[in-house]
């Protein structure tokens, strides 16, 4: 990894599954032999309002467990996009649903605006797979993990019998990222 510590934040509204997205990427890190710490905002905060989860990746032991200036932000609602684009690290990558409006002052060259919610609903056919679509897109853009590792990480966190639809969601998410974009945003791990 270019940086010793890569901080990722996932934000949306309760029910969009951003916590699970965050957990899956942490799981993929564990399988890859990286250090990771994952945490989230729980309880009332996670019901209805802004829901937030964080994953930190590192090739070294991670102590401090909170994200302060994320290197990557996934935002699925306008409120979370508005709130968390204020604290980005220099050169941070923002992935947002393309139905949202980017606040002023954010570097557009580092923003990936893609139809995550629509792809889940129309292409996968299930709106609740938006988080898995996002995971597929994140990994295609940042090139964090090998495809088989990511698939295994997803498999460990989904109910039996839903493997096929989740695989489809990953692939559709990955297809939202054009090759040239991935070359720009790829992170070097480990």
């Amino acid at each position: 990894m270019g940086k010793k510590r890569y901080e990722m934040r996932f934000a949306g509204s309760g029910g969009q599954g951003v916590i699970l997205a965050s957990v899956i990427l942490a799981e993929a890190a564990v399988i890859s032999g990286l250090y990771t710490v994952q945490s989230q905002a729980y309880g009332p905060e996670a019901r209805g309002g802004v829901s937030k989860a964080e994953t930190i990746l590192s090739s070294e032991k991670i102590w401090y467990s909170k994200v302060t200036h994320p290197d990557f932000l996934l935002a699925l609602t306008q409120a979370s996009l508005d709130a968390y684009t204020k604290t980005l690290a220099d050169g941070a990558v923002v992935m947002m649903d393309d139905s949202l409006t980017l606040p002023k002052g954010v570097d557009r060259s580092r923003v990936i605006s893609i139809p995550i919610l629509r792809a889940a609903k129309e292409e996968v056919g299930k709106a609740f797979t938006a988080n898995i679509v996002a995971v597929g897109a994140i990994n295609a853009a940042l090139r964090l993990f090998k495809d088989d590792i990511l698939l295994e990480a997803v498999r460990r966190h989904i109910p039996a019998g839903t493997e096929e639809i989740n695989k489809k969601a990953l692939d559709i998410g990955a297809a939202l990222i054009p090759q040239e974009q991935a070359d720009v945003f790829a992170q070097k791990l480990g």
Partner: peptide
């Protein structure tokens, strides 16, 4: 809460 809600490998 820090340790209880944190995930690590």
């Amino acid at each position: 809460e820090i340790v209880g809600h944190m995930r690590e490998g």
